[in-house]
Computed example of a mutant assay.
Amino acid sequence: MRTRLLAAALSATALALPAVASPVVGVDALKEWNLIVLGDLTSSSEVEGRTFVGGNLDGNSSNYQIKTPPPSSYDTPGLIVVGDVTGGAKNLNNGSGAVVGGNVSSGFNLNGAAQTVQVGGSIANTNVNQNTVNSGLAANAGFLEGLQQQKSLLASGMTDLSQGMTKLEANSTVTFANNRGTFNAKPDAKGVAVFNLTADDLNRIGEIQFNLNGADTAIVNVSGANIVLNDNFLGGTQGLGEHVIWNFADAKNLSLTTAWGGSVLAPGAAANTGNYIQGSAVFGSLVQNGEFHLGTYTGGYTPTTPTDPGGPKPVPEPGTWALMLAGLAMAALLLRRRRGAAA
């Protein structure tokens, strides 16, 4: 019975949410998006993969989906913005497509294959040509609700994922020699290696060597409110974002001054980037002056229950319950609207 109710609720939600028909939750979000900003993004740079912005997108001319990301099972467009798009023109590439909850005053340059753009408010400074551009969609039932639902799921899911990782027991170590930090992963039976550091530990490092040693996922928990990423990777950054998650659960401010290897999870941080990150990235807000490169997370890590004997001991991930509750809420909203229309 519970399964049928959940299926019905999710089906009703999908009908109500033309903008985000299949919400992305949990660890899947790190695989789906190259960049997730839960609040506002001010950008003068580019993102190679998909981008989600929970607030407004501003700044000078910037570029989105300049490469082809891995195939999506969620049918996610290259750019989602819950708020408004302002500032310089935004370039959408390689059939990116976009969904915007508010107005687009900056305009889009729609490059490459034909694209579909859905806008809740008005759109200006955009040449449609062979593309499909629909505006004024906020009047449609469920359009804005769908965007807000995805934002809410990401905000809660990324925060809970980050906090859950901090509860993992460290099984791997980093050694320091002068200004060089060497990370030696010792993965458990599920291929998960866990490091625990402080912000002061990270600040001691000028050069990094990262040895995965066969780990599927290496989680580096870094405690501290103010984080500066200014270290050089002696072993290179290629592929680290697919397997390494730098988790800054306590971070309020994060500054990137050099190229950084690995996915970054900092859902509460106001971030500022001046060079590229190769991997998935999640921030509270972002001033972007450095690129985000593909190499997004591909590992098999999933939060497990404390009784799971084969892995570490985090808290359960909330995505499934959050999605079910959101679906039931949307189903109830649809029912009320239909009853009102019938009256």
Rank of each mutant, 00 (worst) to 15 (best):
L6C: 13
A7E: 13
A9W: 03
T13W: 15
A14L: 12
A14P: 04
L17R: 15
A19F: 02
A19N: 05
S22G: 12
P23E: 05
V24C: 11
V25R: 06
V25A: 12
A29P: 07
W33E: 05
L35E: 05
G39D: 08
L41P: 06
E46V: 13
V47N: 09
F52V: 02
N56M: 08
L57T: 06
D58N: 12
S61Q: 15
Q65F: 08
P69L: 14
P71W: 07
Y74F: 14
D75R: 12
L79N: 06
L79M: 06
V81Y: 04
N93T: 10
S96M: 06
G101F: 04
G107C: 02
N111K: 03
G112F: 03
G112K: 05
G121K: 00
N129S: 09
Q130F: 03
N134W: 04
S135I: 03
N140D: 12
E145I: 11
L147T: 01
K151N: 11
K151W: 11
S152E: 05
L153K: 01
L154P: 01
T159N: 07
T166R: 11
T166C: 10
A170G: 07
N171Q: 12
A177Q: 12
T182W: 11
A185S: 11
G191H: 08
V192T: 08
F195H: 12
L197G: 09
L197Y: 11
D200C: 02
I208T: 10
I208W: 13
N211D: 13
N213W: 08
T217L: 01
I219T: 05
V220N: 05
G224P: 08
I227M: 07
I227Q: 06
I227K: 02
N230I: 06
D231M: 15
N232I: 13
N232K: 15
L234G: 14
L240I: 11
L240D: 03
E242T: 10
H243F: 08
W246S: 08
D250I: 09
K252M: 11
N253T: 15
N253L: 12
T258K: 15
G261H: 08
G262A: 07
S263K: 00
L265M: 06
A266R: 10
A269G: 05
I277E: 03
G279P: 01
S280P: 02
A281G: 00
G284K: 04
V287I: 12
V287D: 00
Q288Y: 01
N289S: 04
G290N: 00
E291N: 14
T296S: 13
Y297D: 00
G299M: 01
G300V: 14
Y301H: 03
Y301T: 00
Y301I: 07
P303Q: 08
P303T: 09
P303Y: 06
P306I: 10
D308E: 13
P312G: 11
P312I: 09
E317A: 15
P318G: 09
P318I: 13
G319Y: 06
T320L: 12
T320A: 15
M330N: 00
L335I: 11
R336C: 15
R336T: 14
G340P: 04
G340E: 12
A342F: 09
